[in-house]
Design a binder for these strands. Structure first.
Lengths: 231, 231
DNA sequence: GTTAGACCTTGACCTGGGTCAAGCCCGGAC
DNA sequence: GTCCGGGCTTGACCCAGGTCAAGGTCTAAC
């Protein structure tokens, strides 16, 4: 195992709580994989190669419709894992993945993961609750897409991005077209929506940088209460 | 414990594989709960009372938007469980639930479930993979809502409902308005869509009964290949 | 430098599916 | 029986957001 993989796995949300014994087992078989920007990592339907842990860069997980439309399910940044659901549930890759930046990942082959799950009860419980959280997140996403309009979705996403950094200002970590796809919008609509929010003074933008000026009002927009100035 | 709850739990997908020891523990604390048609079972945000197992009837799990629009996440019929995700992940109820028919459920309080998860490794693994399957299902739902149009969604749902019974004919187990909500449509649009499918000869309907006449063509519609007659 | 190709923005236009409204049918209360 | 309310269908109309097209800007390649 390359030394890099150990570090990556130590620092990821999923495996950082492992017992020393379990960790040693994973360390034996994990390996480093590198991807260039734009490179495809796997395709929907591919056999699942194991659990990927992002060390550097950024990975985009997305679905492709027969007509070519794509929908970004989520982004994985350093410390996050992907393909873990397929590994646990023993299905093939349920979506596509590619690197949006030059990226370094640790790959834990499925067999290794399975051995740990069989032996390490605490890990198993953690995975169980981890999956439950995933379900929770997905239900939230679904709710968003189904119950809110474009403007609310954008506002909500901005608030969430912000609160995770705890400041009033942050940088969008992905291209706008990918964000648009994640929110089930076209990039045109996202562009127009951000523009309207700027015009109303709720946010300011400069390139990929976004500052929230009027959080309470933005919150109202996210909740579907169209403020008067949204004529 | 009432005798009924034992039977219900024995026959449900989630707990039927339990070891005798684990089963005995659950049996000690499970109890029967009954709901009248239309009765609310829990509300979004309520503390999670435990895992419900449906014995008879039908339960509808749904989200409510601030503007009153509702979205049906799924239906639980005899043998199915609900609220299990919240119980495992330790969050409050993430949605509303009500009975669409007079229903009988077994309720396994969260504490009891947790004890078993702590002690029964095989059960724990089963829950883990069960949750992974849930994620898989939800991603499929999301994909459906986002990548397909109304007609494809309806066609796909019909095919799935059918294949689960393995015949060319089946009865919709829910009201059309609830199905519409599940597919993120209004009941008007569902009505019109079914009507078009009937006109094209792909299906026949009589009340809640639906017969698929041209499965291959219906499959094409589900895949977004609009057949010529869909002018 | 300049050419090529992503992005992103903005405008003009179009359409799938929602909204509103009317009418039918059926089952349950009385 | 008759009344009432909910579910379902159908038609007419409308609008949020998609599509198409035209620049503008930045980076990467040569």
């Amino acid at each position: 195992m390359e030394s890099g993989a150990v570090t990556i796995i130590r620092n990821c949300g999923l495996f950082c709580g492992l017992s020393e014994a379990s960790f040693a087992k994973i360390a034996e078989i994990a390996r480093i994989v590198r991807f260039k920007r734009g490179q495809m990592i796997f395709r929907e339907g591919d056999p699942c190669p194991g659990i990927y842990v992002v060390g550097e860069g950024a990975v985009r997980i997305f679905k492709l419709a027969p007509n070519g439309k794509e929908h970004v399910l989520h982004f994985a940044y350093p410390g996050a894992t992907f393909a873990e659901v397929a590994a646990i549930g023993r299905f093939n890759c349920p979506a596509f993945a590619d690197a949006t930046e030059d990226s370094v990942c640790a790959l834990v082959p499925e067999a290794g993961f399975r051995r740990i799950a069989d032996e390490d009860h605490a890990f198993c419980i953690e995975m169980m609750t981890g999956m439950a959280k995933w379900v929770h997140t997905l239900v939230g996403l679904l709710e968003d897409l189904v119950l809110r309009d474009a403007t609310s979705r954008v506002a909500r996403h901005l608030i969430q991005s912000d609160s995770s950094e705890g400041q009033a200002e942050f940088t969008l970590p992905m291209r706008k077209k990918d964000l648009a796809s994640h929110l089930n919008l076209t990039s045109e609509t996202l562009s127009r929506t951000l523009h309207r929010l700027v015009e109303c003074g709720l946010i300011e933008t400069r390139e990929q940088r976004i500052r929230i000026c009027e959080l309470p009002k933005l919150q109202d927009v996210a909740d579907g209460l169209a403020p008067a100035e949204f004529a």
